[in-house]
Design a protein around this nucleic acid. Structure first.
Ligand SMILES: [Mn+2]
Ligand SMILES: [Mn+2]
Ligand SMILES: [Mn+2]
Ligand SMILES: [Mn+2]
Lengths: 218, 218
DNA sequence: CCTTATTTTTAGACATATCTAAAAATATTT
DNA sequence: AAATATTTTTAGATATGTCTAAAAATAAGG
C-alpha cells in the first residue's frame, strides 16, 4: 500500500487543510512534518504521481478524494488505538499519542474492525477528537473555544485543541478533565485571562490555555 | 533503536540457531529471510558492527548476548500480540501471524508491559509456543513430536511445529485443537502414517502431519 | 591432491527518503 | 515598475536496504 512516510504526509496535509483551505504551502508542510522544504517538494511529487494530492508548482497541495480517504483511515486508526491504550492498558491521555503514531501504520482491515468492536465503537478519542467510522464519517459537533465565552457563560469541556503532553499534564495538575462543567466567573480585559469555576474550585487560566479548550455551551 | 529489517534478521537468526548450533549459514539465513545471500552478507556485517552477532567470514553467524536479548524481546512481543488478537479480537490462530509480524516492531516498553498484564501474563501463544517474560525467561517443557509416539501411547497436543496458515486450517478441518488428548491407535510401518483417536473420533494422519504436532506425554 | 561444484563475499547498481546549497519563482517594498 | 525579500524548486549528496553478476573461498569427488 503506502509507505510510512507517505501516510504521515497525507495525515499532516489533512490536518493543515483546515487552516490552509486554498492549498497547504510547502513551508507549512515542512514545519508540520518537521523536515526541510526540499524534502517536502520531493514527496509531494511522489504523492501527486499516485494521485493522492493535487499539486501545481508554487501553489501548494490539496488532498484528492483518494488522498483524503486514506488520511481519514489513518486518523481513525490513530484515535482508536488511543482509546485502546487509555481504556484497556491504563495509559494516561498524555502518553498515548507517541505510541499511536506507530500503531496507526499497522495494516490489517480486520484488526481495526475488530478493535473498533472490542472498544464498543467509541465516537471520541481520549482528547475529545471524533473517531471516523468504517465509512470515514464522523460527527462535527458545534463547539466553541473557552476563550470565546463571556463572564457568566458556562459549558462542558469536550476536547483539547493542543494535545501536547505538556498541556495535558498541565490540565491534570489543575484538575480540569474532559466532561467537566466550566463556568466563566470573570474575564480580565487586559490579558484575556479568566477565572473559571470547575467542581466548585476557582482557577485562573491564561488566554493561551482558554484558547486550547473546546467547550460545548450549555 | 534497531530498524525493522535488523529486528527481523535477529529474530530469524534466533530461530535458525536451534538447527544450526555451529553458526547460521548465509544461505540458510537468506532462505529464512526470503532474500539473497549477498543481502544477507551486507546485513550481517552491519549487525556485527553493532555487536549483535558474532561473525567470521564464511563461518556463519551466531547471536551475541545482546543480540539474543533483543531477539527474545521481539519474540515476546510477537507472541503477546498473537494472544491479544485471538483472546480479545476474535482472530483465529491461522490469522494472527501476519499481523503480529507488524505489531512486534512497535516500540514502547510500557505498551508491552501493560499488554502482558491485560492478558494476565499468558505463558503460551495461540500455537502453544512459550512466551518469554519481561526478563526474557520462558519455560522449556519436555515435549515430543507425535511422530515419535508408538502404538498405544497417548498425550496432550500442546503445540504446532509448523504454524503456517495452511497447516493450522487443516488441523481445524480435522478438529484437532490445542489441549486435546491424542491416542495412537495404529502406526503404519510402510509410510509412518498413523490412526489416532481424538474426542472419540479416529483420524488418519500422514507422517508430515504427526511430525508437526508437539505432544506432552501422559 | 587436484579438479569441480557449491557457498559466500565483493563490486557495482537501484529505490526510497532524507539533507544542503544554489537557482528559480513569487511576493513585498520602495 | 524595479529592487529586495521570501518561498519554493532543483541539483547533487548521503544513508539504508535491496538486487544481479562476478570473484573468491570452501567443500566434495575422483
Ligand atoms: Mn494523537
Ligand atoms: Mn487524539
Ligand atoms: Mn507467529
Ligand atoms: Mn505463534
Amino acid at each position: 500500500m503506502f509507505s510510512l512516510s507517505e501516510e504521515n504526509y497525507l495525515k499532516t496535509i489533512y490536518h493543515l487543510e483546515q487552516a490552509y483551505k486554498e492549498g497547504v504551502s510547502t513551508n507549512a508542510l515542512a514545519e508540520g512534518m518537521d523536515t526541510k522544504a526540499s524534502s517536502v517538494t520531493d514527496m509531494i511529487k511522489k504523492l501527486s504521481e499516485k494521485s493522492l494530492v493535487k499539486y501545481r508548482k508554487y501553489q501548494g497541495v490539496k488532498l484528492s478524494e483518494s488522498g483524503r480517504k486514506t488520511a481519514v483511515e489513518i486518523i481513525r486508526k490513530h484515535r482508536l488505538w488511543e482509546v485502546f491504550l487509555v481504556e484497556k492498558l491504563d495509559f494516561s491521555w498524555d502518553e498515548v499519542h507517541e505510541v499511536a503514531e506507530q500503531l496507526e501504520h499497522i495494516k490489517s482491515e480486520k484488526l481495526i474492525r475488530q478493535l473498533d468492536k472490542f472498544l464498543e465503537f467509541p465516537s471520541r478519542d481520549p482528547h475529545g477528537d471524533p473517531i471516523p467510522n468504517a465509512d470515514g464519517k464522523f460527527v462535527v459537533s458545534n463547539q466553541t473555544l473557552l476563550a470565546e465565552l463571556q463572564k457568566g457563560n458556562s459549558g462542558i469541556f469536550v476536547g483539547v485543541k493542543d494535545s501536547s503532553a505538556e498541556f495535558l499534564r498541565y490540565l491534570d495538575k489543575i484538575q480540569v478533565s474532559l466532561g467537566k462543567l466550566i463556568k466563566v466567573i470573570d474575564k480580565e480585559d487586559y490579558d484575556q485571562s479568566m477565572i473559571v469555576e470547575v467542581d466548585g474550585l476557582k482557577i485562573n487560566i491564561s488566554q493561551e490555555v482558554s484558547n486550547n479548550l473546546h467547550i460545548k455551551m450549555t
